[in-house]
Design a protein around this nucleic acid. Structure first.
Length: 439
RNA sequence: GCCCAGGUAGUAUAGUUCGGUCCAGUAUAUGCGGCUGUCGCCCGCAGGACCCGGGUCCGAAUCCCGGCCUGGGCGCCA
């Protein structure tokens, strides 16, 4: 069929801002055909754009012949423009419909779509991700990303307001940040390099100059994880601050989380409705439990963790049931945390690292960092790392490294919490995991 | 890396226990026809599938072996 050019048409409204008050007004809409319902003498075109849907009504005997013939050709997902008149009516749930004066078809679509875009026969996540571009045309699937956008916007607003500078550290690095095994190797002009798993060392160095920084960006973990909460490529929201302790950045974190939840509650009613999920605004301060307290409570529940060991997923699930929503776990054994986490003064078996949990999921981890070069090198060795491969990082500690602390939020995990999604792949546009590299 | 489960039309599923009643049922989608107020429109008709390879058997969607792919759990972590 012959396609139309957009010509001089300019969108006047999104579907979402057409209201009964516009009765009689001529408008121009752009979007896609979501559904055609033809009753014989009258035809309904459900047109969709980013903001929602709108009914275009074609009473066959009362529209121009060229409008009727053009509407004959329409199929699901055709990209179209409609110029028409808003009509107030009590026959649609929105209270409005549009009677077209001209329809333009910009592009066609396959007759048989790989997923059902009306949502009557929901597809599996695997099928949906294979057709992700189309999958995101479903309101409930796009909703999570609108919420993610709002969350990130709130986080940025909050941190800007508090004087944090947004920075960008390298994604291509020469050596491991925290260990060796979980990095993706890349060939860098013949040199061996890796994709960054975290901005940790760079953001610490930046506290020497910019003092309060944050970074939002993707990081890469070559772990063979196979769960609903892991990705090979994920977005981290990292904060690092000079002259601060774990407690200082925990206070910052709980404010960031609360502010973000408020923003979602205020701005995302439509998206939450599409997801059939309710926003909750947590009270602060969040509860704080020490590692020892958690172990003691777990023991009462019949789950024994030897002191010094990491808390297992099974144990976290038990914890999640009776701890409620957001809670901190503090005072971890030093040996269970990364080498750069500061041991407690006077009790080096414990450290100033913390995790922020949401039920059983680790949302954020952070802590006070080691600012002393010798101690840091000692901790590297204890972790089996070679200080020589951290030469440039360690050098920074010769020039006045301040006491500092920070944390990192897993953006997709936060989005899971905010949207109620149970699989992290739902909240990553094009997820990368152990077995998925496309699309 | 270890463990478990599963691959049936475009999509989602029934059937697999205990091989034959299944040249595979249903819904939705698609195509064609009909219908002037639908909004999961409705009605009729049509086409469309047993992951791949091997084996057992008179007979395999069903049982066995191998492969490929997927989902989930553990560990690791955001």
């Amino acid at each position: 069929m012959t396609l139309d050019s957009i010509g001089d048409w300019v969108r006047t409204h999104y579907s979402g801002n057409v209201t009964p008050e516009l009765d009689g007004v001529e408008i121009t809409l752009f979007g896609w055909v979501q559904e055609v319902r033809d009753l014989g003498g009258i035809r309904f075109i459900i047109m969709q754009d980013r903001e929602g849907t709108l009914q275009v009504t074609i009473p066959k005997k009362r529209v121009a012949p060229e409008v009727l013939s053009k509407s004959d050709t329409l199929q699901k997902r055709f990209s179209i423009g409609v110029k028409g008149t808003v009509k107030k009516t009590n026959m649609t749930s929105r209270g409005i419909e549009v009677i077209p004066k001209e329809i333009r078809v910009f592009n066609v679509a396959a007759e048989q779509l790989p997923i059902d875009i009306t949502g009557k026969t929901p597809a599996n996540i695997e099928t949906r991700l294979d057709a992700r571009a189309l999958d995101l045309s479903l309101e409930q699937n796009a909703a999570a990303f609108k919420i993610q956008h709002t969350a990130l916007s709130a986080i940025r607003d909050f941190l800007f307001e508090k004087g944090y500078l947004e920075v960008h550290t390298p994604r291509i690095i020469a050596s491991a940040t925290e260990g060796g095994a979980e990095l993706f190797p890349v060939d860098y002009f013949g040199q061996k390099a890796f994709l960054a798993q975290s901005p940790q060392l760079y953001k610490e160095q930046l506290t020497m100059s910019l003092e309060k920084v944050f970074e939002v960006g993707p990081f890469f973990r070559a772990e063979l994880s196979h769960t609903r909460r892991h990705l090979s490529e994920f977005v981290s929201v990292d904060v690092e601050q000079a002259f601060a302790s774990a407690e200082d950045v925990m206070k910052l974190l709980e404010q960031v989380i609360q502010f973000t939840c408020k923003a979602i509650a205020e701005k995302c009613a439509k998206e939450l409705a599409a997801l059939k999920y309710r926003a909750t605004i947590p009270e602060i301060p969040f509860k704080r439990f020490t590692y020892d307290e958690v172990l003691a409570d777990l023991a009462k529940e019949g789950v024994t963790i030897p002191w010094g060991e990491d808390i297992t997923t099974e144990a976290f699930r038990v914890l999640g049931k009776n701890r409620g929503y957001y809670y901190f776990i503090t005072d971890w054994p030093t040996k269970s945390k990364a080498f750069y986490i500061k041991p407690k003064d006077g009790n080096p078996e414990l450290c100033e690292g913390f995790d922020l949990m949401w039920r059983w999921i680790e949302l954020v981890s952070g802590g006070t960092r080691i600012a002393d070069k010798n101690l840091l090198m000692e901790r590297m060795k204890e972790k089996g790392l070679n200080p020589d491969s951290f030469k440039y990082h360690l050098q920074a500690f010769d020039y006045g490294m301040p006491p500092h602390a920070g944390w990192a939020i897993g953006l997709e995990r936060l989005t899971m919490v905010l949207t109620g999604k149970k699989n992290i792949r739902e909240v990553a546009l094009y997820p990368r995991d152990r077995s998925r590299l496309t699309p």
